[in-house]
Amino acid sequence: MSATTAAVPFWRAAGMTYIGYSNICAALVRNCLKEPFKSEAASREKVHFSVAKWADGKQEKPMLWKLGDLTWFFMLQLSAQMMNKDLVPW
């Protein structure tokens, strides 16, 4: 393998992981489908879970991930996370 370190892809430089990148791509593709494929694909995009971080044996305030349409709001979540803001529940 070449020894020269290639520049990291633009999305990694902006703080995304590969998973984030691939999810955004997939959501965008799903958005461009014809009906009825689009509505069947919508069921593959629902996200709902609640995460709580722990520190020193104590549970901190849980954060709820709740997304219907992933396309736009994934990006919002990412930016909220970057700025350490609370997620907008909806």
């Binding site: 998973i19 691939s22 629902k46 996200v47």
Partner: peptide, 10 residues
Amino acid sequence: NYTQIAVLAD
């Protein structure tokens, strides 16, 4: 679904 788990993995 995969998206949900992927967000969690992220």
